[in-house]
Design a protein around this nucleic acid. Sequence first.
DNA 1: AAAATTCGCAACCGCGTGATG
DNA 2: ACATCACGCGGTTGCGAATTT
Length: 260
Amino acid sequence: MGRAPCCSKVGLHRGPWTSREDALLTKYIQAHGEGQWRSLPKRAGLLRCGKSCRLRWMNYLRPDIKRGNITPDEDDLIIRMHSLLGNRWSLIAGRLPGRTDNEIKNYWNTHLIKKLKNQEQQPEEKKKKKKQKNEKNKIITKVPEDDSERKTLVYLPKAIRVNKSLSYIIPRSDSTLNMESNSVKTSQEEKEQREETKEGENDGFGLFFGEQFHEDLVNNNEMEWQSGFLEKLYEEYLQVLKNEENHEKLLDSFAESLLV
DNA sequence: AAAATTCGCAACCGCGTGATG
DNA sequence: ACATCACGCGGTTGCGAATTT
């Protein structure tokens, strides 16, 4: 037996949202803020379940959402973040201002998988041609027998729910809705929260990133540190891969440092 | 021009987790 | 310690649009 549905489906609308429903939801949230999703539909006069309202707002109606036209930079960022974090779409979305986890997930499944497959095939074809050329010229190059099987080790951690405290370690770019909401923290509050954690226990972040980088996260504006963040992530990642003996252990710590 | 197929994306679903009583 | 609630996440589905046959 599965878990009972989040709400009674009887009499509730399903499927595509109408513009009237969108207007009701937007108006309500602008007046009262996000949250209380379960009771929101009734209070907003909507015949939808709370889950559906939340999804519609998060993925479509929020005022800061960018739609379409994923730039090459974003494209690259998604690929690189995915190689580090696996299918943690919300975490990846947090690095792309105005993008939602659903959009990134869809983009990955429809565009990037194909793109990466094509990229995989191209070197294979090149390799074949090179091999043919070498055979022709009777030049022997030493290639491991199972070279074609050898793959870059990519750590794909299990899907873990992202702790809210992450918002100050890797602040969500879209966390500053221009409306009253209890869930929106000021940068000062974020800083204070970070200080508390720092005093309490090692948050794990220092394991891979120096204090200077930590300061950069707090002081710089997001777009500035975003590229630096990725570069440093990648450097650290490569370092870990070099450390054959401990790489799994280190990667676990690394993943934890991002999530806790 | 019409039918068949593929694509892209919004929406749904089930489950894990933290909070609360 | 346990049950329940509420929320958020990732996987999957369904349908309209676009493309191909």
